[in-house]
Design a protein around this nucleic acid. Sequence first.
DNA 1: TAAAAAATACCCTTTTCGCGGTATGGCGTT
DNA 2: AACGCCATACCGCGAAAAGGGTATTTTTTA
Lengths: 214, 214
Amino acid sequence: MLPELPSRLLLIDDHRLFNDGLKSLLNEQPDLVVCGQVFQASEVIPTIHLTSPHMVLLDVNLQGTNGIDLGKTIVGNYPGVRVLMLTMYNQPKLLDEARRAGLHGYLLKDASSIDLLRTIRTVLAGHTYFDSSLTDPVSLANDPFGDDFARRLNLTFREVEIIALIREGLSNEQIAGRIHLSIETVKTHRKNIHFKLGINKVTDLIQFAIRHSI
Amino acid sequence: MLPELPSRLLLIDDHRLFNDGLKSLLNEQPDLVVCGQVFQASEVIPTIHLTSPHMVLLDVNLQGTNGIDLGKTIVGNYPGVRVLMLTMYNQPKLLDEARRAGLHGYLLKDASSIDLLRTIRTVLAGHTYFDSSLTDPVSLANDPFGDDFARRLNLTFREVEIIALIREGLSNEQIAGRIHLSIETVKTHRKNIHFKLGINKVTDLIQFAIRHSI
DNA sequence: TAAAAAATACCCTTTTCGCGGTATGGCGTT
DNA sequence: AACGCCATACCGCGAAAAGGGTATTTTTTA
């Protein structure tokens, strides 16, 4: 039987860490190839022309631009391209926006690899997929991943502890005082946390913490 | 019949706005008098000595100190004083801490006046009260106040709009770009939001936004 | 229509964050 | 013994947020 040609995927995300992780995951899939990586909104359209992807994996929080609007543009101008939004955040509002914008899917970044791949294939197959856990407030509260998230994201004990304190609204100085560390150490932990989660703002961190009930 | 002597309440909160609002509410209650207001943790113990309150209304997020620890100290050293924690935030962890610390009650600041007064009287009567809506994740999601919160807190349309954008993780500059305002205007709105909510950090604002599903 | 509220915008200062480094001691594994 | 991981700590820089004002225009409402 004829081997099916692999689908070409274009990754659009200014979080290099996540982008690279995703790429290495996809490299293990014979039917999926990464035809390009874009880190800036301005390069998206040119790269689509250049690589003719079957699918675009698009982060909602692209720096400077609105990921949803960008997705809408892609859907409007390149009807053959499937658009799957990826996000760190569980924001039903954004999900609704994505759905109304005619995008093909919306998925949380910390979905398991299996879920991620299944969703990619589902959307590639012409279906749409909008993470149902995003719309159900109860399933939110009872995060099925439970305490597992720290392991999955390689967060250390100290890092989780500091996330909790940041969530409580403490400043670096207050955190340092509370757990008897140098403020510089707290800053280092924070940098590592940001790196591991692929975020760069307190606001992102708070939302992450709340989603995981830290 | 003998008129009962009014109970003396001591307010401890560095959020002047809330403190004053609470004071004016209490001024209408003949059986409750405010015997003092404290805005700094260091003044708490001296003021208790000075005013011998029946009850202390204590904000969890006192600047510099931990409200729970302070409450524990009061409960430990002044057994006759009832301690009711007040908070902006719905954090089950803090509630548990408060309960374990032997405090007498824990209530959300945006409870209605009626609830607030009822709780104060309940706790004064020797009972404990821990806001049950805080422990129930489902009742959290379905905020009974609904869209009403903006009116209750006197938030304007523009302010709510900006809270939503801050929650999305946008910076002042990005917000200004998105809704076509000067960055200075955004800063002004933010200042007003902080003032109205009695908060002073993004982290607090995010938590507020999430609790009210903005 | 006059007063109040909301929205707009600018100034200045201080503090906190975010991001780029570097470095060292402890602890467990190979 | 060597390596990696974790936790600790410091420096410097630039961006952003916080906090303090003041001021003007538009809109709403009493």
